[in-house]
């Protein structure tokens, strides 16, 4: 257990030891604030955060891989992976420690969007349950994007390649649920297969949480996605840590 805690603590502090955390937070908060207003937030005259949550998955496609790309690629590039895995730490402890540190960092970024719900509360009388489940969904979705990024970071020692692969994978996992993608897939694949693919979309499972509905199937989906990608990351590191 000491290995897990040590890695988690080191990784979390590592974000703030370099300008990475501050650059990320400024860009994320600026974009998360700007996008709903660009979409005429005030013109809707509705006290809810629908527009904020609508843009979040798109923002995550670029922002979460930027947090995840350094997790393992940097360890490989600098050679510190050799130090890490010759300490009495299992690969599982190291992967989980890094993953949870990065997830906690993303949770802080999400929490810092608090002026948004405060503004909505000030202007009207929003459904707080809906806002809370929306944030829960956003956190789970961040975890899912992060798990994908963590896997691609373990594949390479080059952070740029890791970032690009993660962005592509996250874009696919987001967009397969969009109506335009479903229509396109329907023309080439059988309906049942398209239905199954549609269920893999992050967006579909996030959408019901935005509406204030917590379904076991959505929670299960994110749990399976996160643990699946984290497990794959562990396998990659077990096999290729020294390469």
């Amino acid at each position: 257990m000491s290995g897990f805690t040590a890695v988690c603590k080191r990784e979390f502090k590592g974000y703030f030891a370099t300008p990475v955390a501050y650059v990320f937070l400024i860009i994320f908060l600026a974009a998360a604030g700007y996008l709903p207003f660009k979409d005429r937030f005030f013109d809707f005259r509705q006290a809810d955060m629908r527009l904020f949550f609508k843009w979040l998955p798109v923002l995550y496609i670029f922002m979460v891989p930027s947090v995840a790309m350094r997790l393992w690629a940097e360890e490989r590039r600098s050679g510190s992976i050799e130090l890490l895995f010759t300490l009495p730490i299992t690969v599982w402890q190291a992967v989980l420690g890094k993953f949870l540190a990065a997830w906690f960092f993303l949770a802080i970024a999400l929490a810092l969007t608090f002026p948004m719900p405060i503004t909505v509360c000030y202007l009207g009388d929003p459904d707080m349950g809906q806002i809370i489940t929306g944030y829960m969904g956003a956190l789970l979705m961040a975890g899912a994007y992060l798990a994908v990024g963590c896997f691609f970071s373990a594949l390479t020692r080059n952070q740029v390649i890791s970032f690009i692969l993660s962005v592509v994978a996250c874009s696919v996992l987001y967009s397969i649920g969009l109506p335009s993608s479903i229509d396109a897939l329907n023309t080439i694949l059988p309906g049942q297969l398209v239905g199954a693919i549609e269920k893999l979309s992050f967006e579909n499972h996030f959408e019901s949480m935005q509406r204030g509905v917590i379904q076991l199937s959505d929670l299960g989906f994110f749990a399976v996605i996160i643990s699946g990608w984290v497990w794959a990351c562990t396998l990659i590191l077990e096999e290729r840590k020294a390469q």
Partner: peptide, 18 residues
């Protein structure tokens, strides 16, 4: 190899933790 951004103090503390 070590973690370049860490100070010697925090690096040695990390190794103690681990």
């Amino acid at each position: 190899p070590a973690y370049g951004e860490m100070t010697v103090a925090s690096f040695l503390t990390f190794v103690c933790d681990a």
